Simulated scan of single mutants.
Amino acid sequence: MDGEAIPLCNSADLADGGLAVPFDVIYGGQTCRAFAVRWQGGAHAYLNRCAHVAMEMDWQPNRFFDDTGRWLLCSTHGAAYEPDTGVCVGGPCRGGRLVAIALTERDGVVHWHTAFNLKPIEF
């Protein structure tokens, strides 16, 4: 896995189809919000940026899943994304995809991985 592993949360903090865990990264020289979710047992993370228009997607804080817990939805234009791939399957960005952030889980902790264009925010 490329990049530095940064601890994000305990594995138990991510429930299938549940609330996301937010975090900040530097992407393209800008501070951007990102989020991690769990879908069918796997942890996945993306920039909180719709592929249609670069706007944050959550319809309430840390809520990205639709009512069924099946799709990640953009609150602005209703784009629907596959939770495990970030591919847009419905709405104005059909065929587009979210910017993925690599995650790993070990010893009950989820880590996100920096890459050439992602950097942690330093406090």
Rank of each mutant, 00 (worst) to 15 (best):
F64D: 01
L19T: 00
Q60M: 13
G108K: 02
V25W: 04
A36Y: 06
C93R: 01
A43H: 10
G96K: 10
L19G: 01
M55A: 10
G78E: 11
R97Q: 07
D84S: 07
D24G: 12
T31L: 13
V110S: 09
L47I: 08
E122R: 14
K119N: 09
C93V: 03
C93K: 00
L72M: 06
F35H: 06
L73R: 08
A45Q: 01
N48D: 13
T31P: 15
A34N: 14
C32F: 05
D2P: 05
Y46Q: 04
S75D: 14
A80K: 05
L14M: 10
F35Y: 08
D107F: 06
P83N: 05
N10L: 12
L19E: 01
I6K: 02
N48M: 06
P22T: 00
H111M: 12
V110F: 10
L19A: 04
W71C: 07
L72W: 03
Y27I: 09
W59E: 04
L8G: 00
H52Y: 04
L14V: 08
T114V: 08
D16E: 09
Q40S: 10
I101W: 12
G17A: 06
V89C: 07
D16R: 03
F65Y: 08
F123T: 15
G28T: 12
T76P: 00
E105R: 12
Y46A: 05
D2H: 11
Q30P: 03
V21K: 00
V87I: 13
I6W: 03
E122M: 15
V110Y: 12
R70E: 14
F123D: 15
C32A: 07
I6R: 06
R97T: 02
D58R: 01
C93M: 02
T85D: 03
A12N: 08
W71E: 05
G18T: 15
F65T: 05
A102M: 12
G42S: 15
G108C: 06
C9P: 04
G28D: 11
C74L: 09
R63W: 01
